[in-house]
């Protein structure tokens, strides 16, 4: 049905979007790569000489880089573990017959809509503060030593806050996938004598496998860029114990004004994200053919 005229009209309609995204991708990306080879600090004006791989060398050999990589992996891995396991449990539970399912689901997914700065500050002050927070009061009531979350277990505290935000996302997606499961298949298995356990492992889990992969990949993309929660709670500290790669790059570019170093870090972050993105794109692409 597509005529030559409608094809060229179509091309005209799509071009603003393509040009904008092309510009958004190419201009800053090539600038980041270009800056990463310059000695370029905003505090010391003057020539910005080409220094080759120097920025990369200093960024990679900086001890805080190693710490940031470990923190990034722990943060992403920890949150994934909690949200995927919790999400499966939540989704299974919410899929059961019950009263007030709508309102319960609304309550369970609400954290996802809370802006990151609010959830960071609310958890830090109203819950995790050892003196005035709820956990502190709870410890007092039980007569045990309250935990000083952000000095004793800073990274774990951030993992918990971020998990609270992302558990609804995993729950909602897994629930959607679960609801598309063929009920008759489950009933048939039950009649054949399959217990709840084997029904879960042999029918539900394989059915969920795809949705779980999607959850893992999409969350990883977002979790690699966790920033606001760290900024408002710990500022990356104590020391660098909650500094992830995103935060480290922010510190060197906007706090230390080291454009060259920040850009070298940026290139590394892009490479890291791309490794995950390739897998995600492949999955989504497959779906597009179907």
């Amino acid at each position: 049905m597509a005529t030559k005229a409608s094809r060229s009209a179509a091309r005209l309609m799509i071009s603003p979007a393509v040009l904008l995204l092309l510009g958004w991708m190419l201009v800053p990306l090539s600038l980041t790569i270009y800056f990463s080879f310059l000695r370029y600090n905003l505090i010391t004006p003057g020539a910005n000489p080409f220094v080759g791989w120097e920025n990369y060398y200093w960024f990679l050999t900086d001890p805080s880089f190693k710490a940031a990589m470990v923190n990034t992996l722990l943060l992403v891995g920890g949150v994934l573990l909690i949200t995927v396991a919790g999400g499966i449990l939540f989704a299974l539970l919410l899929d059961q017959p019950m009263w007030g399912q709508g309102i319960i689901r609304i309550m369970a997914i609400s954290p996802f809509f809370v802006m990151p700065t609010v959830s960071g500050l609310v958890w830090k002050n109203m819950f995790m503060n050892p003196v005035n927070g709820i956990f502190g009061h709870l410890a007092q009531a039980l007569n045990v030593q309250p935990i000083d979350f952000f000095s004793q277990i800073p990274l774990l505290s951030i993992i918990l806050i971020v998990s609270w935000q992302w558990l609804p996302f995993a729950t909602l997606i897994l629930l959607t996938a679960l609801q598309s499961l063929d009920q008759e298949q489950l009933e048939a298995a039950e009649m054949d004598g399959a217990g709840a356990f084997s029904r879960f492992f042999h029918i539900m889990l394989p059915h969920l496998a795809r949705a779980i992969t999607v959850v893992i990949l999409i969350q990883t993309i977002f979790l690699l860029s966790i920033f606001a929660e760290i900024l408002v709670t710990t500022n990356g500290g104590p020391g660098v114990s909650t500094t992830n790669l995103t935060y480290l790059i922010y510190v060197s570019s906007l706090l230390q004004f080291d454009v060259g170093m920040g850009s070298a870090g940026g290139v590394l972050a892009i490479i890291l994200a791309n490794i995950v993105a390739i897998f995600l794109m492949r999955m989504i692409g497959k779906n597009l053919d179907a």
């Binding site: 990306l29 600038l31 690699l224 920033f227 995103t246 790059i249 892009i270």
Partner: peptide, 17 residues
């Protein structure tokens, strides 16, 4: 797919420029 790939670009990678 290409449009989607631009979404995968981590913001911090282009923060400086």
């Amino acid at each position: 797919m290409w449009m989607l790939s631009t979404k995968m670009l981590p913001p911090v990678g282009v923060l400086v420029p």
